[in-house]
Write a protein that binds this DNA or RNA. Structure first.
Lengths: 309, 309
DNA sequence: TTTTTTTCATAGGAATTATTGATTGCAAAC
DNA sequence: GTTTGCAATCAATAATTCCTATGAAAAAAA
């Protein structure tokens, strides 16, 4: 049985005439006759009662079969419509993972802009650690993830989005409050607060300021389970100092005068934020759109990275 | 789009593996790959995300398409089941027309026996004049009709069922009550009651007893709108005499002593009852079954006619 | 009657499409 | 690096679809 054959019998039932039905199907009359004969043989049932002169007649069982053929064809039509609707890579769900230290600062501006550039894209957000996001990406639970370099996994492609300098956050009355800039090595002597294990930003800070974790620096503290916002509040409370990605301070309340931020001495420690997806992911256009949307109106204080489509 | 392609994508979604899916569909892996590629191109949508090593992944739109493919295939399956059920020519509706002068006598015995020989046949009965039955048969409103010869129409085939002698019905106290048999010509001198125009039996009686309608026989009366039963009651009431087909008296109450029946002198006027159907009617088996059912247990007093299958 | 017309079935051949085993290419695992 | 597993590709062949031309049957017209 083929859908074409079903279309043929439906046409015959509508035209009551093999020749006209064939015309309606844009085939020759023998083509249609043979196809129907084949279907009748396959079903083991005579669908039409042919008489040479008068109109053809539909058998009782033939009518039932034709009614069902309508249903089959209709469902097939719905299938193509489903495909048609889903043709747009910028429609449907898009599951985006973002690491904890980017999500709160990137998403508030990204989401409303993405609603304009891709209004049919139903964004579903997950915030998590890089490792968990990567697992979900690999398993297909996420369509793309936004993480920080270095990130190099087999089967995964990435595109850099922007470079984000690190800055130092101090309590207003800190001894460094008057400094212009900070040397990374100086942090070892301070009450430095870091995120818990799992946050890549923690590792990046440690790498930028290697001394802070050396044996003699017992001032450095890890806040397991905490977030950058938690740490920032602790800085404001005078508990210690910390290192933040610059985007995290651009979105904080302007009048937050309890905290002072200082840049690092050049070349400043920096992280590169990137988007990653499975190599064979079929909706690359959606990823390009997200990347472009992020870069079209960059966050203050970060440096866009040239697209390498 | 073909049903085969839909079966392929369903198989892939079940096996998560092109090779195994191909095996399940009893085709080679390239066959399945190409078919799916073709479907994806036709729909303009990527259904599967292929990665070399790991299992394949179904895209969001692909899942929707596959869900719909299930529905299409299921409806197609229902179609074949409908055909399967209807394969039996002895199932479904069968619309049988019978003329007025046969129906009341044949059907009471035919219907219960047909329920045994063809229990799935849903018999729908129409009683009417030959001409009307023929029209309905030609138009397809009836599947077969039971009429009396002569009956010869283009595109219609017939098979004789049985020969039925005519008999004369008299009031008990009629002058002929003691006769052994009646000569057709004698009827002209009697109060002969006939059915109205349209009943073929009327014409057959007139043909058998030509004198009864000649100018000098003003005793013959036509009962428009009447039936054989009406006429029989009038005979019982002594209004006149009539000619009946023999089956009509076999089913009358045994103790109906107000009427006396007499055979005609040999060769008795007789009618041949036959079944007729459109030449191209596809369920000939149903007709053969009805014919055989009538003849397997013949009505009393009639002569079966040899089947000429 | 005979002829014509209508209509579906059939035949033969061309074009298209489907199918297959063998091969290639790719990515991951050893 | 080599092997392994998987899907894509290739080239040859098989199957099918499709068309034109023709045939057969029956009704309508001459």
């Amino acid at each position: 049985m083929t859908l074409t054959e079903l279309r043929y019998i439906v046409a015959v039932s509508q035209k009551n005439h093999f020749g006209k039905a064939a015309q309606a199907c844009f085939v020759s009359q023998p083509t249609l006759s043979i196809a129907i004969k084949k279907l009748e043989e396959e079903l083991g049932v005579r669908l039409f009662e042919r008489s040479s002169k008068n109109e053809i007649r539909i058998t009782e069982i033939g009518q039932q079969v034709i009614n069902q053929a309508y249903i089959v064809l209709q469902e097939a039509q719905i299938l193509t419509e489903i495909a048609q609707q889903g043709k747009d890579p910028l429609s449907g769900q898009f599951k985006l993972g973002v690491i904890y230290t980017i999500g709160p600062y990137l998403l508030p501006s990204l989401i409303p802009r993405l609603r304009k550039t891709a209004p049919n894209l139903k964004l579903i957000i997950e915030e998590n650690f890089t490792a968990n996001l990567f697992q979900s990406l690999k398993q297909g639970a996420l369509d793309a993830i936004i993480i920080s370099y270095p990130f190099d996994e087999p089967g995964i492609e990435t595109a850099a989005l922007y470079d984000e300098p690190f800055i130092v956050a101090l309590p207003r009355n800190h001894e460094w409050a008057d400094r212009e800039q900070i040397q990374p090595e100086d942090l070892a002597s301070q009450d430095l607060m870091l995120l818990g294990a799992g946050h890549c930003f923690r590792d990046q800070v440690i790498k930028a300021c290697p001394d802070c974790m050396s044996g003699d620096s017992e001032l450095t503290r890890t806040l397991e389970g905490g977030s950058l916002e938690t740490i920032r509040h602790m800085v404001a409370a005078g508990t210690g100092i910390t290192v933040l990605p610059r985007t995290s301070i651009l979105h904080s309340p302007k009048n937050e005068s309890l905290i002072v931020t200082k840049p690092f001495a050049q070349p400043s420690p920096t992280r590169t934020v990137a988007i990653a997806w499975r190599k064979h992911y079929p909706r690359k256009e959606a990823i390009v759109t997200i990347r472009d949307t992020i870069q079209d109106s960059p966050l203050d204080g970060v440096d866009n990275i040239q697209s390498v489509a």
